[in-house]
Design a protein around this nucleic acid. Structure first.
Length: 227
DNA sequence: TTGTGTTTTACGACCTCC
DNA sequence: GGAGGTCGTAAAACACAA
């Protein structure tokens, strides 16, 4: 019995894109029963290692499929097309498709299982590549920030040194004038004594003196001396 | 031609859901 | 408990360099 099938009749929507793949070869004995009855489920035994393929291998359980057969290009194209629309098949639909493609329903089920596994792997690879790219850009940004922190730390150290030099110079000036004018000595003695500089070993911290109210008082005081 | 790596088909074990 | 899913893997089919 010739069981070739016109796929375009079964799936009219495919006729446009797959019109060249209309006829699918039927594989002897591997189709589901044509009377609509449920096919008998039978386990296929796995070929043992080292055994050679014989004709007997081709006539195993399920009415003739034991030896592994590659699906035809047309069958694969059809299955791929179906997979684009639905990743899982209901039982009835699976049997219908199997009948149309001349495959055993079990083959269709296995093909969809394997296809889902490949699809999942592909998605995982894509996700991995995406995360890897994001991670690399974060690392790059971190490097840029660290180099910026280094530069700013250097600038801060220079500024601190400058302030220290200035304050020392002022103290020397005041000390020399203090001996001649007693009125000014009172002002110098009133100067705040708790002037703080940031510890140099905490390079990333904001200098403590900038957070301290005394810093502002100190600056006002020293600025007042310059006026 | 042959050795080797990859892809595809098929299965068994186990899990989940109804 | 059965149907149908995933996961891991065996083995056939295939691709390709040497």
């Amino acid at each position: 019995m010739d069981q070739t099938v016109l796929i375009s009749q079964v799936y009219p929507y495919m006729a446009e894109t797959h019109s060249q793949c209309i006829i699918v070869n039927q594989i002897d004995g591997s189709s589901s029963p044509g009377d609509g009855s449920k096919p008998v489920k039978r386990r296929r035994k796995r070929r043992s290692k080292g055994s050679s393929a014989t004709n007997e291998d081709d006539v195993g359980a399920m009415g003739g499929m034991f030896r592994k057969r590659k699906l035809t290009d047309e069958q694969v194209i059809m299955l791929e097309y179906l997979f684009e629309n639905e990743h899982k098949l209901e039982s009835g639909r699976k049997e219908k498709i199997a009948g149309e493609l001349g495959l055993d329903p079990r083959q269709v089920a296995v093909w969809f299982q394997n296809r889902r596994a490949r699809w999942k792997n592909k998605k995982l690879e894509e996700e991995y590549a995406k995360l890897k790219s994001q991670h690399e850009s974060v690392i790059l940004g971190q490097c840029q920030l660290e180099s910026q922190v280094l530069k700013l730390t250097e600038q801060l150290t220079e500024a601190q040194n400058e302030i220290r030099k200035l304050s020392e110079r002022l103290v020397v000036q005041e000390t020399s004038t203090n001996s001649s004018t007693s009125s000014l000595s009172v002002e110098v003695n009133d100067a705040p004594t708790d002037f703080e500089f940031a510890p140099t070993d905490t390079s990333y911290d904001i200098p403590l003196y900038m957070l301290d109210n005394n810093y502002i008082q100190n600056m006002e005081y020293w600025n007042g001396l310059y006026v």
